[in-house]
């Protein structure tokens, strides 16, 4: 694109800051990234940050305080495109486990007691619980390759690529032995690809950290795992670890049917 550079903001809500760190981990490409676009705000990397109109806002982290709700809404107002970056922003992260407000409250009390906190907290949610999200780039944390691919396309004004395949696709390309077939609890068939099947390539089952893949056959894998001898409770817990809020509808229907 000729003419003006795109104005970009990178924001961190509650999470491990791993997605912002992954951008800094593009060591070789970093100078080119800073040249290609006008980075208006990137707290982890620079001090001279401005909150102004943006072409693209990249938001990582889940929404966990009332203040973050306001900040997020403000980012949406200022930005043409909002991208959810990483597992916490796309599904709410591992901290989105306690969605029932009462349960959340109980657990909150276990950690912070009765102290009245100055920054009121809310139940952890993905950013699309509060604003419209234009693109999702999942991962815990995001992958460098998917990010650079996404970034290059956006800078050139092309629509970003989508990744509809599960981890199994990469796993097959790598000619790994199927861990599920060998009786291990592997979430590869249900998990969005982006890591390149890194865990199965290390002889370890997929834990699901990219979040649920679109169109994953959860019912079928559930029964498959049950046949392999895993208990219902155990399967549900393992499937929930990295699924955030995105499977709650599925479980409601599943429990009714089953």
């Amino acid at each position: 694109m000729k003419g003006k550079k795109l104005k970009i903001g990178i924001y961190e809500l509650t999470g491990c800051a791993g997605d912002a760190l992954m951008i800094l981990n593009c060591e070789k490409e970093l100078p080119a990234i800073f040249q290609a676009v006008d980075i208006q705000s990137f707290l982890m990397a620079k001090s001279d940050n401005i909150d102004d109109e943006l072409d693209v806002a990249l938001v990582e982290g889940s929404v966990t305080t009332e203040k973050e709700v306001e900040e997020l809404k403000d980012i949406r107002k200022r930005s043409k495109i909002v991208v959810a970056l990483g597992l916490c922003a796309t599904v709410g992260g591992i901290q989105a486990r306690f969605q029932d407000p009462q349960k959340w409250q109980e657990n909150f009390r276990q950690v912070y007691g009765e102290t009245k906190m100055e920054l009121p907290a809310v139940v952890s949610k993905p950013i699309d619980a509060y604003i419209k999200v234009d693109f999702y780039l999942p991962g815990c944390p995001i992958s460098k390759e998917q990010f650079l691919n996404f970034f290059t396309r956006v800078v050139k004004g092309a629509p970003p690529e989508s990744y509809p395949q599960p981890v199994c696709v990469s796993c097959k390309y790598k000619e790994n032995d199927c861990l599920l077939k060998n009786g291990l609890f592997c979430l590869g068939p249900l998990t969005a690809d982006g890591c390149g099947a890194v865990c199965p390539s290390h002889n370890l089952p997929c834990v699901g950290c990219w979040g649920p893949v679109q169109g994953g056959n959860w019912t079928s894998e559930f029964y498959l795992l049950q046949d392999k001898g895993f208990s219902r409770e155990f399967i549900k817990k393992k499937m929930a670890n990295f699924a955030g809020t995105k499977l709650s509808e599925f479980w409601k229907q599943f429990d009714r049917r089953d």
Binding site: T64, T65, K67, F98, Q110, V111, S124, N241
Partner: peptide
Amino acid sequence: NEGPRLIERLVIGRTPEE
């Protein structure tokens, strides 16, 4: 400024591997 993630609570009931 980040909110509570209650990590110490959400590992309860999970296996050591998880």
